[in-house]
């Protein structure tokens, strides 16, 4: 279209208004924060592939060259953490399932069945406070309870002949139960928000038809809860897998056979000569692997769980 008579300056001037400065600025800011959020993770990722020499001699966020490349850190980290990974899995899956179930039935009893509004409200408030309290407020009784009163170390002794279990694995059992107890309030809240958004009509109709409270739960509420069960499961699994304070205080040391992956990771790759950052980074990724996979697959559900966590 452009005619040869146009000067160069003029043709540039004709292009310019087509570019939207605001959009460029916006894209620039978005990319800046993209870099801000990804750079610690990216830097850790490339560092995990570097030899100990390359870790200090290369720029941290640039992938290693051929001479500085190694998979050794990953295999060491995996060997070191695999016991913790198994322990974390054995702990996280049952405690997530139990807390999701208990949270769901509690929310059902408090929202979809009306009995006494004031009493229901008081119970709700007690649940909500349970979400927010700092766990430090129950740590001393908790360890006193499990270790001195229950005598958790001998708890699973009758099962002691099984090849996988050692006596100390009973500490893992204590952590599992503890997670269930303190996860109930948040699961209850997540389900409550969802149940309140369900239409009353279906449940009212079922009541008029004479369905009992149990059969309403099993036949109507539970099938309708499927998407929310997914959200709560993903959210809770991530939270329990990532948790550290209960593991530290109830299991104690990262060398314990019952140590969860977060506990093992906290002792990885540091000795008298300093921190082996390549190994640390590889270990961090191995420990985060299940939650990363879940996050990549179900980012939306995770965000939904977070947004309604209040």
């Amino acid at each position: 279209m452009s005619k040869p008579t146009h000067s160069r300056a003029e043709s540039i001037a004709r292009i310019l208004p087509a570019l939207n400065y605001r959009k460029i600025g916006l894209a620039f800011v978005v990319m800046f924060f993209f870099a801000f959020f990804i750079s610690p993770i990216w830097t850790g990722f490339v560092t995990a592939f570097k030899t100990t020499g390359a870790v200090t001699s290369t720029t941290p966020f640039i992938p290693p060259g051929l001479d500085g490349f190694t998979l050794e850190k990953w295999s060491t980290a995996f060997d070191y953490l695999s016991r913790g990974m198994v322990n974390s899995l054995v702990m996280s899956v049952p405690s997530t399932i139990a807390s999701v179930f208990l949270g769901s039935i509690a929310a059902y009893g408090l929202t979809l069945v009306d009995w006494n509004e004031r009493l229901q409200f008081s119970i709700l408030v007690l649940f909500l406070v349970g979400i927010f309290i700092p766990y430090q407020a129950v740590l001393v009784p908790l360890s006193d309870f499990w270790i001195n009163i229950v005598g958790v170390d001998g708890l699973l002794e009758p099962l002691g002949n099984l090849p996988f279990f050692t006596a100390r694995h009973s500490r893992l059992f204590a952590v599992t139960v503890t997670h269930v107890v303190y996860a109930i309030p948040i699961c209850m809240l997540l389900f409550r928000g969802y149940y309140m958004s369900l239409s009353d009509e279906l449940i009212e109709a079922a009541k008029i038809d004479g369905a009992s409270i149990t059969s309403i739960y099993r036949r109507i509420v539970l099938p309708l809860s499927k998407p929310m069960i997914g959200v709560v499961f993903i959210y809770q699994f991530t939270m329990i897998w990532n948790e550290f304070l209960f593991s530290l205080t109830l299991i104690g040391s990262s060398s314990s056979p019952a140590a969860t992956v977060t506990l093992v990771l906290s002792g990885l790759g540091s000795d008298l000569t300093g921190v082996d950052f390549g190994l640390r980074m590889a270990g961090a990724f191995v420990a985060a692997l299940p939650t990363l996979i879940i996050y990549v697959l179900f980012a939306e559900q995770f965000a939904e769980g977070l947004a309604s966590d209040r």
């Binding site: 924060f33 993209f34 959020f37 990804i38 610690p40 993770i41 991530t238 897998w241 990532n242 948790e243 550290f244 977060t262 990771l265 906290s266 961090a284 990724f285 420990a287 985060a288 939650t291 990363l292 879940i294 996050y295 980012a299 995770f302 965000a303 977070l306």
Partner: peptide
């Protein structure tokens, strides 16, 4: 942007 929130503090 939300990715850090899915990671453990230990990590």
């Amino acid at each position: 942007y939300l990715l850090p929130m899915a990671l453990s503090f230990v990590v």
